[in-house]
Amino acid sequence: MRTQRWTPRSVLLVVVLLAVSFIYLYPFLWPVFSSFKSSNEMYTAGFKLWPEHWTGENYGRAWTTANFSRYLFNSVFYSTASTAITVIASALAGYTLARYKFPGSRVIGVLILAFLFMPTATSVLPIFELIQTIGLLNTVWGVLLALTGGVGFSTLLFRGYFSAIPQELFDAAAIDGAGFFRTFRLIFPLAKPIIATTAILGFTSSWQEYFVPLIFTLGNPELRTVSVGLRAFTQQYSVDLSGFAAAVTLSMVPIVAVFLFFQRYFIEGLAGAVKD
């Protein structure tokens, strides 16, 4: 890390970025600050962010109304579980595809690429039928599987990452007599940054997904995610703006926490600081 100094250009950039940041974050900060305003103030506040009188009562209402706490719990569960499945399945596959040639490896590689470009629209109905056929429709597991999906993209990420690891490491492992599983165990710690990357991408994408959970919870509202459930909230309580703002703010807590936790590794990964 080199020491940084204030220079004319870095002052200029920081000033510009601070101004941009405020505008950029306004729609993000709006629900956060609105959630501390009273319902009356909400309607007279206009574009002002800062509450005149702070109140916490919206949070109690948001938490208990419209099953919100249930939705939040669901979202945390789906995202965590689907991230775990994605990371495990695609790390193993990415590793073998990157380092071994075996009958079928080429076909798998081509298929992943070809299907990467298949729009969600094309797969959602058959997945619906599949989940129905195996008897998981309207269950937690059905939603979880549908949300996890085909893990092709994360497998590509892992394959790319493992391909770039120098061959010498593998040769050294082979000289030490390491077999398939021991080599994987030796190499795996090097993959921390890409695990962080896939975990963040996987978590956010299942956290954000709307189309899939919407369709898979049509028959059982109890299973809804926050992204789908909040919609019901606004449709039922369209006048309760500050309650909505509190619900939105609460819904951001888990994902921001996950992001801040992984960010360290994530940025580490981006910075290429693979060596521990």
Partner: peptide, 27 residues
């Protein structure tokens, strides 16, 4: 190694075939 390779590919293959390849056929 071949057996081990296919073994660790199973989770990926199940998900990929069921949720990516099969849906296209079915569509």
């Amino acid at each position: 190694d071949l057996g081990k390779i296919y073994l660790v590919l199973i989770p990926f293959l199940l998900l990929f075939l069921a949720f990516t390849v099969w849906p296209l056929v079915r569509t």
